[in-house]
Design a protein around this nucleic acid. Sequence first.
DNA 1: CGTCGAATTGATGTCATTCAACTACAGTGG
DNA 2: CCACTGTAGTTGAATGACATCAATTCGACG
Lengths: 197, 197
Amino acid sequence: MEINFDSYLIQTAGLPEKEAKTLYHNLQKKEYKKGAILLDKGAPCKHSFFVEKGLLRSYMLADDGKEHIIQFAPENWFIVDRSSVYFNDSSDSYIEAIEDTEVVLIDEEFFCQAKEISSVFNKFNDKLLHNHIRQMQKRINLLLGASAETRYLSFIKMYPDLLLRVPQWMIASYLGITPESLSRVRKELATKNFKPN
Amino acid sequence: MEINFDSYLIQTAGLPEKEAKTLYHNLQKKEYKKGAILLDKGAPCKHSFFVEKGLLRSYMLADDGKEHIIQFAPENWFIVDRSSVYFNDSSDSYIEAIEDTEVVLIDEEFFCQAKEISSVFNKFNDKLLHNHIRQMQKRINLLLGASAETRYLSFIKMYPDLLLRVPQWMIASYLGITPESLSRVRKELATKNFKPN
DNA sequence: CGTCGAATTGATGTCATTCAACTACAGTGG
DNA sequence: CCACTGTAGTTGAATGACATCAATTCGACG
């Protein structure tokens, strides 16, 4: 289950082994306990997090105090407040550990080095951005009109592995419905004898 | 009101004048009548559109046949199905002219040339992507819980210039509510003697 | 002037929220 | 080991916000 960032760079990003190792050695690793806050609203977000083990989430607070979950990040995923990092602004989101989590901190310096060392990395980074956009697009499309049930079903389809690791109320928050509603949706699906797995 | 892409490259993207002119001359321009389809679902999206004059929109069709508006693009904006262009896939969105519109077609070749000619362009492109993500994030946050009224007010705030150019039912579609609901929201705001301008 | 789509308005329906009560379970301290 | 507490999840009843359906008005355009 645990994934090292260096092997990620080689296998997924397609960097040559030597370069990947070099880059990897300059990076800082950190561990966080369940419930720990990795990024606080108002603080500048100075790096991306790559999750080697565990599970993170990012969320914003609405005016009425409710949490809106932006993203989950299990192993192999990046999580970051892009606005904050890129525009050097204070973040308007939080990042929190849902489980005990081990991350690699990826700062601007890393990106500069990586870009110099390898044009492959540039392309890969570009691809990540585009994927991110594509995924957000899908989510917007869902939020623009899909029923609670449809949203939940699409969540199951997209992130089946998260179903068992994320508490229900967080899934509800991600879907933009209340925990009570989600509970009812699940009950309804159960009577239709639908099985998630 | 009309904006040429070459001056955009110079002033907004920060390219040197000479390079901008060179790049610009290789580009193709097109005009579309109001109502014209620039990109059809299923067709591969082979280029971005830069709007020099007029107004475009992109939208997807939901399963129930309803349109979900993804984006508006007035002068000075890009519009594209990024998934389709980038992953060389068939598009799952439409692009349509809301007004008579003049666009510049920006294909892969342009990007390659631009990247070779100027590293400034690379950075600029990156910035565009990040802005796009930032803006989608805001929208998701709105859709996750804001009332019809709040959504509308935030739309007014973000795109005041579009208010008068976009038909109401399209704004409703963009906000994820029905035209009827939007009409009532506006009425409600009027009695509270709220003035958009 | 007549037509067609956009916008408004009213009556009614539906889905999700809200509020409250209750169960289940994990963690804490006596 | 058992009570105490807090959080997650479920369930029910009442409410509310938005959707739907239908009728009407408005406005642009041929």
